[in-house]
Amino acid sequence: MDVQEQVRLRVADWLARGGLRPTRQRMALATLLVGDGEHRHVTAESLYALSANGTEKVSLATVYNTLRAFCEAGLMQEVVVDGAKSYFDTRMDDHPHFYWEDTAVLTDAPAEELKIAHLPTAPDGTEIARVDVVIRLRRR
């Protein structure tokens, strides 16, 4: 099996895990996200810029909608920085992030070094769905 076929199968399997149809646009964007088997942190704008070099042209609105569909399907998670800037992460386990303020880049932080001793009790009728830890970095 050649590399292109391996990528196509990896992407099709990824979409199938989320119960999503493999449309041309989803396949094109998913190839950029998981085609090589590596994890990615992208913004809609950065994924749109990457897709401009491909053969399948997609609008920025389609990129936003597709990223939302990937999140709703449990294939990606959204990490919000500054209450307005969203990054989309293909790594689905619980892990902290570094946010590099000078470059506006989000990267994984070593989870084994993070210790959360206690979380506050959730209000009645609710449960904690997830805890996002974003550690902001600034160069000296």
Score class of each variant (00 low, 15 high):
Glu72Tyr: 07
His97Met: 00
Leu32Glu: 04
Gln4Ala: 06
Gly74Cys: 13
Asn65Ser: 13
Leu15Thr: 08
Leu67Arg: 07
Ala129Val: 15
Pro96Asp: 03
Glu78Gly: 00
Gln77Thr: 09
Ser86Val: 02
Met76Glu: 03
Val34Gly: 06
Ala49Gly: 07
Ala104Thr: 03
Thr31Cys: 10
Ala16Asn: 10
Arg140Ser: 14
Asp13Ala: 10
Ala84Thr: 13
His118Ile: 15
Val131Pro: 05
Arg140Val: 15
Asp102Gly: 14
Ala109Lys: 06
Ala111Arg: 07
Gly35Tyr: 05
Pro96Ser: 09
Thr62Gly: 00
Gly37Trp: 10
Ile128Lys: 11
Ala69Thr: 11
Tyr99Ala: 02
Leu119Ser: 06
Val81Ile: 06
Ala73Ser: 06
Leu20Ile: 11
Ala129Ile: 13
Ile128Arg: 12
Phe98Tyr: 04
Trp100Leu: 07
Gly125Phe: 07
His41Ser: 06
Pro22Phe: 00
Asp93Ile: 13
Gln77Cys: 04
Val3Phe: 13
Ala122Lys: 08
Ala30Lys: 03
Gln25Tyr: 01
Leu67His: 03
Thr90Lys: 04
Arg139Asp: 03
Val134Gln: 00
Thr31Pro: 00
His97Arg: 06
Gln25Pro: 02
Thr107Lys: 10
Asp82Met: 11
Pro123Asn: 09
Gln6Leu: 11
Ala111Ile: 02
Arg91Tyr: 13
Glu5Pro: 03
Tyr64Ile: 02
Phe98Asn: 00
Ala28Lys: 02
Ala30Ile: 06
Asn65Pro: 04
Gly37Thr: 10
Ile135Thr: 05
His41Trp: 08
Tyr87Cys: 01
Ala30Asp: 05
Thr107Val: 08
Pro22Trp: 06
Arg10Met: 11
Arg130Cys: 14
Arg140Asn: 14
Thr121Cys: 07
Ala69His: 10
Asp132Ser: 07
Ala61Met: 12
Ala117Val: 15
Lys85Gln: 04
Lys115Glu: 14
His39Leu: 11
Val134Arg: 01
Asn53Asp: 15
Arg130Ile: 15
Asn65Thr: 13
Gly35Val: 03
Arg68His: 12
Pro110Ser: 14
Arg139Ser: 09
Leu119Glu: 13
Arg21Gly: 08
Glu101His: 13
Leu20Tyr: 09
Asp2Ala: 09
His97Asn: 03
Ser86Phe: 00
Thr62Lys: 10
Ile128Leu: 12
Thr31Ser: 12
Ala12Glu: 08
Val81Cys: 11
Arg24Val: 12
Leu119Gly: 03
Lys115Ile: 09
Tyr87Gly: 01
Thr43Tyr: 07
Val81Gln: 09
Leu137Phe: 12
Ala117Tyr: 15
Arg138Thr: 14
Pro110Phe: 04
Trp100Tyr: 05
Pro120Trp: 15
Gln4Asn: 04
Leu32Arg: 01
Ser51Tyr: 03
Val58Ala: 14
Ala52Arg: 07
Arg136Gly: 08
Thr66Ala: 05
Thr90Val: 12
Thr43Leu: 05
Arg24Thr: 05
Phe70His: 08
Tyr87Asn: 06
Val3Leu: 12
Ala122Tyr: 10
Lys85His: 08
Thr90Pro: 01
Pro22Val: 02
Leu67Phe: 12
Asp82Leu: 12
Trp100Lys: 02
